[in-house]
Deep mutational scan, measured.
Amino acid sequence: NQESVVAAQLIPINTALTLVMMTTRVVSPTGIPAEDIPRLISMQVNQVVPMGTTLMPDMVKGYA
């Protein structure tokens, strides 16, 4: 089963992602794949992401 990127903390809107903000977990439905974490660093979220929420492609500016 593929791991997806999950918020390790509350991420406010327009925050640039850092490694410490993200963790990985096997979730359903699947979100952004864990191997894309290096690509996500410094990208901004376009909404508030509560802790434990799976990051979906449409939540990250410039990802999709």
Rank of each mutant, 00 (worst) to 15 (best):
I37T: 05
A64R: 06
V48I: 13
L40V: 09
I13F: 11
M51W: 09
M22G: 00
S4Y: 14
P57R: 04
G31Q: 04
I37G: 06
L17T: 00
S42M: 07
L10V: 10
M56Y: 08
L19D: 03
P33F: 11
K61M: 11
L19K: 08
P57K: 09
V6I: 07
V27F: 02
G31I: 03
T23Y: 14
P29W: 04
L40P: 00
E3L: 05
I41H: 04
V49D: 00
I11G: 00
M59N: 03
A34Q: 10
I13D: 12
Q44N: 11
T15L: 03
L19P: 10
V49H: 01
A8M: 14
S28W: 04
Q2S: 11
P12C: 14
S42G: 15
L19S: 07
Q44R: 12
A34M: 10
Y63E: 03
R39Y: 11
V49Y: 01
D58F: 13
E35I: 10
V6W: 02
L17R: 00
M51F: 10
Q2Y: 10
A16P: 12
V49T: 04
V26M: 13
P38A: 04
G31A: 05
T23G: 15
P38I: 09
M21A: 06
M22V: 10
G31E: 02
N46W: 05
A7W: 02
N14C: 08
M59W: 15
P38Q: 07
L40Q: 01
L10W: 15
V27D: 12
V5S: 02
Q9P: 01
M59T: 04
T54W: 02
N1D: 15
Q9L: 08
N14S: 10
I11Y: 01
R39W: 06
A34N: 06
V45Y: 00
A7G: 03
Y63T: 03
V26T: 15
P50L: 11
M56C: 15
A64E: 07
T30Q: 13
T24H: 14
V45C: 04
T54L: 08
S28I: 05
Y63C: 15
A16Q: 09
A7C: 03
V26C: 15
P57I: 06
G52N: 07
G52M: 14
A64V: 10
Q2N: 15
V60Y: 01
M59V: 04
A7I: 02
K61I: 07
L40K: 00
P38L: 05
S42N: 05
